[in-house]
Structure formats: structure tokens, C-alpha cells
């Protein structure tokens, strides 16, 4: 009996030692989730991870500070690393922002002259830059093949689909965000990546048309 108690105590101690070891091995300074995060990586993780268990929640559903608590809860539930959590948080917090409307989106005339001017003049450089933007920001939801990996995301290959629209419409949808009819999920402004410039968006439209357009 005495030996049994010792074994039990040793097991408990082992658990605590393991906890301490793991904690100190990967220990980092106390960190607030707002401090870091790669939104492009976060978009990919968000698309891949969340829908395995539940329907995708719209990033605009919650304010920034509420997303902090929600992704922390999901860190525990879904078995995410701290960095995964910060990446997803960065994406969600950027995606719930209202689009900053630039002058080029105020009217079709203005956007034609300032926003989408130059689209249609493809070069290898433009397509390469567009491909980079697509792979960093769009691929998480739209997929490598452009057919969409998240429910509600349109199929770029569809000849009568989104790419049959004018460049101007595509440009405005990307800048301001868009929700496809019937979808329970909206594409956030700039795909959730606020760092995208007008040129990035023009380049990625070129890439989409060249790669997936009919």
C-alpha cells in the first residue's frame, strides 16, 4: 500500500514536471494577442481550421476586443499554437474593419480613370506580382485552383461567374468587400489584408483573368 502511494505521488510529480518542462522549453514573455500576427497566414489558417467543426463566422460579427477572447477560447478548443492564434486574430481584426474608401471608388468614372486604369495591359511582371498577391492573400479561401475551398466562395472557373464581370466591378468588390448571393460569409475588404495597394489589386485582377478567366 505504501509503495502504491509512492507510485501515485511520483506520477503526479511527473505530470507537474512535464508541465514545467514544456512551459519553460517554449516559454515566451507574457504577450498580448494584439501585439503580433500575420493576417495572410491567419486567413489561411482561419479558412482551413474553423470550418472543420463549425460554420464559418463572419469576421464583421464581432469587434476587435471580442475576437481576442474568441480566438483565445478557440486556441484551447482547436489545439492552436499561440502564433496561429495571433495570426488568425490579425486577420479577423483587419477583416472586420470598414473599408477605407479612396477617391477612386467614389464613382465609376473616377474609378475608371484612377483606380482600374491600366488593367488589361498584362505583362509577365504584372502577372507575377498578381500571383504573389493571390498566394499571400486570396488563396486561403479561393484555393489554388480558383474553385474555392470555403463554403460560399465563388468558382473562378465558372464562365458565367464572377470573372465575367467588368474589371471595374471586380476592383470595387475587392476594395470594399463583397458577399456572394446565398453565401453566409462575406469577403472582407481587400480580402482582409489592409496592406494591399491599388496596384496590388490591379495586378491580382490581371492574374485572375489570365489564369482563371475564360
Amino acid at each position: 500500500m505504501k509503495n502504491y502511494i509512492h507510485i501515485k505521488t511520483a506520477l503526479h510529480a511527473g505530470v507537474l514536471i512535464l508541465a514545467f518542462f514544456l512551459a519553460t522549453a517554449g516559454a515566451q514573455a507574457e504577450k498580448h494577442p494584439n501585439e503580433e500576427g500575420d493576417s495572410a497566414q491567419g486567413a489561411k489558417l482561419w479558412a482551413q481550421t474553423c470550418s472543420r467543426c463549425h460554420n464559418m463566422r463572419n469576421p464583421k460579427e464581432f469587434r476587435d476586443e471580442l475576437w481576442v477572447a474568441i480566438v483565445t477560447h478557440m486556441r484551447v478548443r482547436a489545439g492552436l499554437t499561440g502564433q496561429d492564434t495571433r495570426n488568425i486574430l490579425a486577420f479577423l481584426q483587419q477583416s472586420n474593419s470598414v473599408a477605407r474608401k479612396s477617391s477612386f471608388t467614389k464613382s465609376s468614372t473616377t474609378s475608371e480613370s484612377k483606380g482600374i486604369a491600366g488593367i488589361g495591359v498584362s505583362s509577365q511582371d504584372v502577372l507575377a506580382r498578381g500571383k504573389t498577391v493571390f498566394e499571400e492573400t486570396c488563396v486561403a479561401c479561393h484555393g489554388d485552383d480558383g474553385k474555392g475551398v470555403v463554403p460560399g466562395v465563388p468558382d473562378f472557373i465558372d464562365g458565367n461567374g464572377v470573372l465575367s464581370q467588368s474589371n471595374e466591378v471586380l476592383f470595387n468588390h475587392i476594395v470594399n468587400g463583397f458577399e456572394s448571393p446565398g453565401s453566409t460569409l462575406a469577403m472582407p475588404p481587400k480580402g482582409g489584408n489592409e496592406d494591399l495597394s491599388n496596384k496590388d489589386i490591379k495586378d491580382v485582377i490581371e492574374y485572375l483573368n489570365a489564369t482563371f478567366g475564360s
Binding site: A27, C53, T72, R75, R77
Partner: peptide
């Protein structure tokens, strides 16, 4: 839930059983 590192969280209390997926997540 005590977040000790990016890879480890220590949880104390009454928790949902981590056996399988349905009880803890679905």
C-alpha cells in the same frame, strides 16, 4: 486556462472530456 507558452496551456477545473471530438467540440 493558464497560457504558459505558445505550445502549452495548463487547464485546471472541471473540463469537457478530451476523448474524441463530439463531447468537447461538437
Amino acid at each position: 486556462d493558464l497560457f504558459l507558452s505558445d505550445y502549452l496551456t495548463v487547464i485546471a477545473g472541471k473540463f469537457l472530456s478530451p476523448v474524441g471530438q463530439f463531447r468537447q467540440n461538437l
